[in-house]
Design a protein around this nucleic acid. Sequence first.
DNA 1: ATTCTACAATTGACAATGTCAATTGACAGT
DNA 2: ACTGTCAATTGACATTGTCAATTGTAGAAT
Lengths: 202, 202
Amino acid sequence: MAKPLSNEDIEQRRDELVAAALTILEVDGITGLTLRRLAEGTGVSRQTPYLYFKDKAALVDAMCVAGIRQLTASSSQAVLEASAKGPIEQLRMAGETYVRFGLQNPNLYALIFNPAKINAKPSDAMAEAVAENNAVSRSLMQRAWDEGRISMEPERLNNVFWAALHGLISLRHDGLICDDETFFQVLADLEQTLAVGFLNDG
Amino acid sequence: MAKPLSNEDIEQRRDELVAAALTILEVDGITGLTLRRLAEGTGVSRQTPYLYFKDKAALVDAMCVAGIRQLTASSSQAVLEASAKGPIEQLRMAGETYVRFGLQNPNLYALIFNPAKINAKPSDAMAEAVAENNAVSRSLMQRAWDEGRISMEPERLNNVFWAALHGLISLRHDGLICDDETFFQVLADLEQTLAVGFLNDG
DNA sequence: ATTCTACAATTGACAATGTCAATTGACAGT
DNA sequence: ACTGTCAATTGACATTGTCAATTGTAGAAT
């Protein structure tokens, strides 16, 4: 092994490292995710990950992209499976998928939405992955909009939904909504409020 | 200086350290907040902060509590100043204060809602500070509820608002809503949707 | 006034971690 | 067999959190 790595090889190694890193993250949390440990775990030496990622930030970015893409795939499938039920119900399924992803991958979710990069823009790759993910729900909203079911432009309503669900999940992860019961109560209340509002009059 | 510190002294030293730490956080971000640097900045030696805080986590917790209390004070004042305008408008003012706090103190806000403690419950002190903060808006909602202005119990609606605003601010800080224009657009859309819903029919 | 004691404060030391730089070693082409 | 190229490893260092040992001083005791 001393000839230049093919692009396929490089990509495969990167994927392997990302997969191993995601496992570490899942098991031991963000503090357990260390480059040395990742190297050990994959049976290589300390510095080897640097052959495939510029630095730890680049690895984390790749992990985030992988996570977002996984979410996008799940959402797409859920939307597809509910295609008979119309865009509004499909939206609900997409939201449910999003919430489930957040609950089942707390460490990864937190990594995606806060790779310790306060005030730093996400990378191009991550921005693209996020855009692809948003496209899933936005296309549903577009259909609902075309059918006259919703009262706000898709792009705008998508941001509203995203903020609401993201906030809920974040509060959960931060320990500010501790029990499941409260969480799903708030989720239901959020759905209702977003749907029909909280004001009694007009 | 060799006699036991009085409780007042200890508290004052703690406050000074927290203030200095908050300044560092504001200026150099979370990565710049290091115990050694804090010690240097306050003219003492490396280990001195350990006389007043068990470890770095304890310091961060104190910083969070201080931040939340500051927010609570701001909200209370804003609510008081708008007391003539009724609970709904007061709620809007409280929300505006919350958002402003999040925008003006991005590092502190992120620290409060993610002291690198994924899956860990907040400390008692922090939970109490958060509860006090929530009490401000919840009391407004209670009045609105008593007056029949809103359609959801105060406690529940408060969580809905909290999640929505928190999510919006977080997306902003994560760089996923980059420009001010979009941010305030989403904020307005969020207000409208929460108020009257997004569904056209019923 | 001198000695002693308690305690704040400092300094020494160490492990973990990210990362740069130098070294090693294997394979392809000559 | 020789050499150059490049993957891979090892050496080294700065930073940081934190424990342990040391220092020094203010007040109490003699």
